[in-house]
Simulated scan of single mutants.
Amino acid sequence: MRIATFNILHGRSLSDGRVDVDRLAAAVKTLDADVLGLQEVDRDQPRSLGADLTAVAAEAMGAVDSQFVAALSGTPGGTWMAATGDEQPGSASYGIALLSRFPVVSWRVVRLPALRASVPLWSEHTNRPFLARDEPRVAIAAVLEGPDGQLTVCNTHLSFIPGWNSVQLRRLMRSLEGTREPLVLMGDLNMQRRAAARATGLTSVAAAPTFPAPRPTRQLDHVLVRGRLRAASPAEAVQLPLSDHRALAVTCERF
């Protein structure tokens, strides 16, 4: 079972600044994942041509089940509000998606605690401090009917604010207590591999730097597991013609 996570930067390419849904579809086909977690996913946003990027990816990979979950409603970087799940069809939204070539038995959405205050952070680009405001964060979990039985897969995109992402991750792990194992947690966790393993108590099965895409020096994207699941081969950080992250893919097997 090939598992992949990819922060798609709403489908935008760093080379030309454009969103091209055909380019996104080709990238997803290249990954050839059986289970795919996407972050920074647009739906009905003008900047991504009003496309449903989850539907584009689902068709490209041949997913039999998929679900998009909005973290915010409105325009990222502009006017927005935290999504509740009750947004009107056709309204612009932004969030995460989980897609599977295996049937999904059940879905669960977990809305993570938001940091309401602005936080001073240091900018590597300007060498000056700035006040950062985080966006709402969400996770989606699914019980899949895999080739060797059922398992749980969860995808999320955590805060970029150090420390708060660990708070969110611990909250997410508490919400997953008692879920069917094996458990796979993947996504852009905005922390390094050792910190992710420490905060979750899970085992990392994918080690490769993923950010920034052209010359990655940090691993912000992860695949972690609990239960009788292991990597069948080394993970790949796949550079694709869109996003500022590389996709992270690993083939796993039961044991």
Rank of each mutant, 00 (worst) to 15 (best):
V184C: 08
R218E: 11
A27C: 11
V56G: 11
L112S: 05
T84C: 08
A232M: 12
W164H: 15
M1F: 13
T84W: 15
E124V: 08
P89R: 14
A92T: 08
L9N: 07
D52F: 12
A55H: 11
L38T: 12
N127K: 15
A247Y: 08
V184F: 04
Q168D: 04
Q39P: 01
T152S: 04
A213K: 03
I140D: 10
A51M: 12
V19W: 00
A92K: 08
V184W: 02
G78K: 01
V250R: 06
A195G: 01
L185I: 09
S106M: 04
D188H: 04
L229C: 13
R128Q: 15
Q168V: 09
V56P: 14
R43F: 05
L72F: 07
G62Y: 00
A199Y: 00
S93D: 00
H157Q: 06
R47G: 02
C154H: 03
V109H: 07
D86A: 15
R23G: 09
S166I: 12
H222S: 10
S15V: 12
H245E: 01
T152N: 03
V64P: 15
A235S: 14
A199S: 13
V153T: 15
G149E: 03
G37T: 05
L53I: 07
L99P: 04
E236N: 06
R137M: 08
T203K: 11
N165G: 02
S243T: 10
P76T: 06
G187S: 03
G95V: 08
R198W: 07
L49K: 07
R111F: 04
L144D: 10
N127Y: 00
A92L: 05
L242T: 05
T210K: 09
R101F: 01
E181Q: 15
W122S: 09
S91G: 12
L14I: 04
S93T: 10
G77H: 09
S243C: 08
S48N: 03
